[in-house]
Amino acid sequence: MTDQTTAVEHDPGATDALLGPDSARFRHDYLEARGLRVAFGGFVAVRDVDLTVAQGDLRFLIGPNGAGKTTLIDAVTGLVPATGSARLGRTELLGRGTHRIARHGVGRTFQTASVFEELTVLQNLDIAAGARRGPLTMLRRRGAVPEAVEQALEVVGLAGLRDTPAGVLAHGQKQWLEIGMLLVQDAHLLFLDEPVAGMTQAEREATGDLLRRIGSQRVVVVVEHDMEFLRAFADSVTVMHQGRVLAEGTVAEVQRDPAVVEVYLGAPAQPGTAATTKEDA
């Protein structure tokens, strides 16, 4: 595990290569959700959410269990039907099929890492990189490993395990593999649902650094409970509660917000601890 961590920490070059040339930074993508609403039968899980996240602003999404964070991601990625609007740049995402949204450059990871367990690490990444391949390429055997895949292997530190079936990876490694898949997928809007849950402290830091680097060139939304992690890496925070956006701002602003404090039932000085406790409960 440690050497993977090292790989992540010591290879910013690979990350930059993977994320593309500097010119890509001028794309200035942004996610803009307006009046987003998801109802399951009579139950409204996400209620009139407005959310704007710009490239270069590593946004964290927090809130108690059941606040609607995952459902919000589900809605934007086309998994559950939603009303309102969610755009990536000028493209409306709502109402499209899941795979179409993905092709428009929206990628996500899952609360529990989900990779193709019977395929190798390399195959997992290769599939993630290949949604735009034509039929002829698909029907041929993979010759050379695509450059992006090679770089992603370096970035997530799984180069040594490229031929290992993903099913036997450790939990944290699977989560990294998923992040790697997100990278080669060439997504411009990335959702990460609790990416560091179950990781060691060193792994968290490595992941946080990676997210930072990605965040500077992509629109990134991270759902995370861990307050320490949040304080260390978040550029800005959106707090959800009972399907609504409760507060938004920098970490410091949000921590001072009385409504947030009330929801987390904690003392203003330490909302983080209280939040974590509540999540665990």
Partner: peptide
């Protein structure tokens, strides 16, 4: 093995 996961990578 994971039809739905494939969808999120942009495949139908």
């Amino acid at each position: 093995d994971a039809e739905d996961r494939v969808r999120f990578l942009g495949y139908d």
